[in-house]
Amino acid sequence: MTDTILPNPTPAPAEASPRGVSPAAIVALFLIPVAMLCFALFAFKPLYLMWCKVTGTQFRPNNPDVAAAATVHTGRYVKVFFETTVLDDMPVRFWADKTSAEVEVGADATNLYHFHNVSDHPVHFRPVHQVSPINASTEFGMKVCFCFNDQVMAPGETKEFPVVFSFAPKLDERVKTVTLCYSLFEKTDAESAEALQQRIKEKTGVDSAVVSPQAPGAAAAPAPSTGSATAPAPATAP
């Protein structure tokens, strides 16, 4: 810090040293926006999903650690409301056996969900679940769920799936009521009815087009593309 007006230092000659950005750097400048565009388009989503996982704000929260944890009997119960919503005016009836249940924190709980396609065409939907409040969703895990995969239902088909879930013992003390809600989103990239039936036929060995709407058992027994949810009986804790 000087207290007087500085004399003008002798300026360096313009050519003394290369200053500013080189041609390579200029090319880099042009690449930055392209990189940012690619970042936002392709890398942002995985990052966002990671962020959601940490904060519990994602669609379909499921904490594998909680799901895999051994049962702990904490003696603390929360009341779980089971919400079922069918979106996009799909012709599906969707309900749960229990609309609410007392669930012990740390232990597995089960509920049975029923689906009935009331239309004469196949429907393709994605089940999306959410846990409210969000403080509960970071402590929420599922062992068995139909929502791990998209579902296809033949005309008139009836299905039922169990859901096995649990809450980690470190669930916030203030949480006493939890809402577990399933929403069925219609898959808009719907295949043509024929293609869909063909696929169902391939997977199940049953021609869904000829299955009687009132005979759900035949078509539903090996449910298509449902991963671990194929077993009708609830899985037990490991």
Binding site: V34, A40, F185, T188
Partner: peptide
Amino acid sequence: LLATPVLAAAVTMVLMDRNFGTTFTIASQG
């Protein structure tokens, strides 16, 4: 330089979802 491409990406998502069948913002498709 850093931010405008991100806006472009965001509105491109809307554009592609509207016209080219992508599913960036459509909840039913992930």
